[in-house]
Simulated assay, not measured.
Amino acid sequence: MNVLLSTAFVLTWSSGFIGAKLGAGSASAVTVLMWRFLPLAVVLGLVAALCARASWRGLTVRDLGRQAAVGALSQSGYLLTVYYAIQLGVSSGTTALIDGTQPLVAGALAGPLLGHYVSRTQWVGLVLGVSGVVIVTAADVSGGGDATWWAYLVPFLGMFSLVAATFLDRRAPRAVGPAVSLTVHCVTSAVVFTGLALATGAATPPAEASFWTAIGWLVALSTFGGYGLYWLILRRSGVTQVNTLMFLMAPVTALWGALMFGEPFGPQTMAGLAVGLAAVIVVRWGARAGGGASRTRRAITPVAEVSRASGSPAPRARTGR
């Protein structure tokens, strides 16, 4: 199940970069994001009111406020920077490559912020993953592009936004169900992007069929698939493992972009993909090996360990999600 979830997560999360490029050809980033989340927030709100009331019982205003902050960072802030970078001319593959540095940042901060021990084997895997990102980044930069130099800094803001959201969620005093968190995050993003679109005069959607194709793509694959699986795997496997999968986003997106948009995909990019796969294998092997370590030097893997470090109880097993 972990392998299937990880594979689905990599594919659906990578689809977000492709969907952003599909939408960038017909509308601004704010317009695409507004119409991605506004109908979705309405549907999820109705489902929560009619079919999922039990999931909301016992939650306080503070719990919902924390989830709104997490959504503002992990959805609104992260996606706005990704879409804006692609709108500025940064390719989907390059944007994914820059976001691929997230695992190293998350791994470095897991110790001081969550009190976790990251094994040496896991650090080797993290460094190996960064090497793969560097290889593919060099291939993309050498291919040239239309974006100005500062446009390549924009995705870094999104990467730090997602890292901050991850740790804010893990330090919550109680676990919130995936259905609740997804609803709160999408409603928060709908409010943020609708406000931005109205303020900038970009709320009216274009009539092109390609725009609505991109919206359907983003809702079905990126939101329900990639974003939902991100938080599910985070709770099942922990911070380090879910973020290590991010190393695969760049080469997978580059391959996807080559197939759909004719973007270059040469031997150097293929080498980066191989190194990224090796990084995931090394980190997962190190996580299993860390299971036998002493309690004071346990590797970051189970949700219970994350919960203990943040002072919160481990979430109970859930079914029917």
Rank of each mutant, 00 (worst) to 15 (best):
A190R: 10
A190H: 03
A190D: 08
A190I: 04
A190Q: 02
A190Y: 03
A190V: 01
A190N: 13
V191F: 00
V191W: 01
V191M: 07
V191L: 13
V192K: 12
V192C: 12
V192R: 09
V192L: 03
V192S: 10
V192I: 06
F193Y: 10
F193N: 06
F193R: 08
T194D: 04
T194Y: 02
T194G: 15
T194W: 05
T194R: 11
T194L: 12
T194E: 09
G195Y: 00
G195D: 02
G195T: 00
G195H: 02
L196W: 03
L196S: 04
L196I: 08
L196F: 02
L196D: 05
L196Y: 00
L196V: 06
L196N: 04
L196K: 08
L196T: 00
L196E: 02
L196R: 05
A197G: 11
A197I: 05
L198Y: 01
L198Q: 03
L198H: 07
L198F: 04
L198S: 03
L198M: 11
L198V: 09
L198K: 01
A199S: 13
A199G: 09
A199M: 07
A199V: 05
A199Y: 06
A199Q: 09
T200H: 08
T200M: 01
G201L: 02
G201S: 06
G201Y: 02
A202V: 00
A202I: 00
A202M: 06
A202N: 14
A202T: 11
A202G: 08
A203D: 14
A203K: 06
A203N: 09
A203P: 08
T204C: 02
T204R: 15
T204S: 12
P205A: 07
P205M: 04
P205R: 11
P205S: 07
P205I: 00
P206L: 06
P206D: 04
P206T: 14
P206A: 09
P206M: 07
P206I: 03
A207P: 02
A207H: 12
A207E: 14
A207W: 04
A207D: 15
A207G: 11
E208H: 07
E208K: 03
E208N: 10
E208M: 06
E208L: 01
A209E: 01
A209D: 01
A209V: 07
A209I: 03
S210E: 11
S210L: 05
S210I: 00
S210N: 01
F211H: 07
F211K: 07
W212Q: 06
W212V: 04
W212T: 03
W212L: 06
W212R: 09
T213N: 13
T213S: 15
T213D: 10
T213Y: 13
T213A: 15
A214L: 10
A214Y: 11
A214F: 07
A214E: 05
A214V: 05
A214P: 05
A214I: 05
A214M: 10
I215Y: 14
G216T: 08
G216K: 08
G216D: 08
W217C: 13
W217G: 14
W217K: 14
L218H: 13
L218A: 15
L218T: 08
L218V: 12
L218C: 14
L218F: 15
V219C: 12
V219M: 14
V219D: 07
V219S: 12
V219G: 14
V219Y: 10
A220E: 00
A220Q: 04
A220W: 03
A220I: 09
